[in-house]
Design a protein around this nucleic acid. Structure first.
Lengths: 198, 198
DNA sequence: CCATTGACATACGCGCCGTATGCGAACACT
DNA sequence: AGTGTTCGCATACGGCGCGTATGTCAATGG
């Protein structure tokens, strides 16, 4: 069948480039990753790259979007298993912390992404992670569980706190020991949003 | 006098390069800033740069350190004027939010800095801002004002929340309107650290 | 006063990005 | 099926920017 052998092949090309880019960007960082090497590793050349993604930044954007979508899906699945929406929000945050510990996520999404693409808020296909959190917060405010703060601001700060918790943990001399402390501090901070503390 | 006319002149050279770099990095971003242009704007050449700072990253490190020191000094001065240490911590956070709204700080310290130099925690001459906040938190925990969380983790998260508040504000379509919301959300989060909420 | 150090300028090579051009396979149309 | 066209991708080219090696001149010190 296939709506065209062309489009099908092109999708595979894009996927292979994105996959190779994920590895290269994660290992060397965006700036140090050579497009020649990267495309060669995918069995292609820079021609394919510029045809599919416009430029190096376009490729990074595609990679970030893919990882972001995976993160949002994981977080949502974890939050859905929680007993209450509030527990879900906390679990979501902890999940972000743990995901952000992966070098790939840290390097690409947290470090190079914002530096090269600008603030995540204005990324094309608006950051899925943030959107997920924002909706959760909105619901909790409507239910009177959280103080009536701006949902977008709160979501951003919660995500930011979680990601910073991960950065701090990763930078620690002993991440194993640091992780529980980071999670504890994160949970404390989050409790500040509760309408009725305790 | 002077312990040598040489060293004195060299200090001025370094200062001029750092000043030019601040402008260039703030306007064009680290990656797009040309060393040739930058040094020419300072009335020098790349020779001076590599002699004084080793490489481009070294120059960025010097710039970041300078801005970081200025921020820490400002924050400390503001915190010192507060009625209580707890109010001081909040004022410090709000001050960080406002400072991080300046494009120079945002671009250099928050975006390019971490991406190029790695996590701020392991920057040479350990991030002065974080150190300031950590000490404040430590005191507040000792006084029983805050919950007994890890001071380093808490300081990192507070700073992270403040800086993210600034990023969110800056990315907003109307920063003027967004700033109070961001500050409000930040204050809520911070309250989560209080031993006796309310 | 001269030898030496060292701060900075100049000259060179290499890598990498973006674009313009070329080729061959999949589509459309008869 | 055959042919003209499209288009995905490879190849070729130009330019810029970084880092290093080399040169130069002023400031030191004996």
């Amino acid at each position: 069948m296939a709506v065209g052998r062309r489009a099908e092949k092109m999708e595979e090309t894009r996927a292979r480039l994105v996959a190779a880019a994920r590895r290269a960007f994660a290992e060397k960082g965006y700036a140090e990753a050579s497009m020649d090497d990267l495309t060669a590793a995918a069995g292609l050349t820079r021609g394919a790259l510029y045809h599919n993604f416009g430029d190096k930044r376009g490729l990074l954007a595609a990679v970030v979007q893919q990882i972001d979508a995976e993160m949002a899906a994981r977080a949502q699945a974890i939050a859905a298993r929680a007993a209450t929406p509030w527990e879900g929000l906390l679990a979501e945050g902890v999940a972000y912390i743990e995901m952000a510990l992966e070098p790939e996520v840290q390097r690409i999404v947290l470090l190079d992404g914002p530096a090269v693409l600008g603030d995540p808020a204005q990324w094309p296909s608006q950051n899925a992670c943030l959107e997920t959190t924002r909706r959760t917060v909105e619901g909790l405010i409507a239910d009177g569980v959280l103080k009536p703060v701006d949902p977008a601001a709160a979501a951003w700060l919660i995500n930011g706190a979680a990601l910073n918790a991960a950065l701090w943990t990763a930078a620690s001399s002993s991440p194993e020991r640091a992780l529980p402390k980071a999670i504890e501090a994160f949970r404390c901070l989050a409790q500040g949003l509760l309408a009725k503390p305790g």
